[in-house]
Design a protein around this nucleic acid. Structure first.
Lengths: 106, 106
DNA sequence: ATAACATTTGGTTATTATGCCAAATGTACA
DNA sequence: TGTACATTTGGCATAATAACCAAATGTTAT
């Protein structure tokens, strides 16, 4: 693994890291249904505005979401819908793991 | 988001978290080309055996890889090839981000 | 049995992430 | 202009992660 490869894997890992948090993952999937502003997420959870805002900024920095200021609000949008296909794969991992656990108990 | 949803997003985030490290990501992609033992990864990097072993155990716990002991060695295998399709999406995010940066400079 | 090899586990330290509060910024409207 | 609203930023305490070294475990062959 040379230094160029290292940078590449670091960059890809950073995108994954942005998704690798339950709240951010939930937000990402929620945004697939249409744009939301910070307040929307605050109302659907028990997190502080600052917490929600920081999570969204992590997703934005990673390039997963986009934002647009309209009036007083900032609307966030899912920028890369292929993320959702990916989630199917993650769920496949979970199912597979479950099958394995069941097999172990038999 | 009720408590069942919360658990589900936590479980999915845990799978992503396992992948969200440059070394583990590299290992995962390497395993797509065929099984490797701990020593193989140690030789290709400058990490300690213990470091490599711990990374592999994170991937195993997440259900991404499988292991099999044969003789003195433990061989690791990619269990869920769909992870690789997912990587194409992550790379798309990177390309998209780059395009955006280029546009900003114009 | 013991020596050599392959891997894992335990322990330590440094770095990073999370979530809250408080304060700052930006925007619309009276 | 000032007040309310929406979001972001800074700071802090706590928790989680990563890498190394050393020691333990398990396996094969002498």
């Amino acid at each position: 693994m040379d230094s160029k490869d290292k940078d590449f894997y670091q960059a890809k890992a950073d995108v994954l890291k942005a998704l690798a948090h339950p709240t951010r993952l939930w937000m990402t999937e929620k945004l697939a249904d249409g744009e939301c502003c910070v307040r929307d997420f605050v109302e659907l959870t028990d997190f502080d505005f600052s917490t929600v805002s920081k999570h969204l900024s992590v997703l934005k920095r990673a390039g997963i979401v986009d934002d647009e200021k309209r009036g007083k609000q900032v609307f966030y949008r899912l920028k890369v819908p292929c993320i959702l296909n990916f989630m199917q794969c993650v769920e496949a991992v979970l199912r597979d793991r479950l099958d394995h656990q069941i097999t172990m108990l038999k």
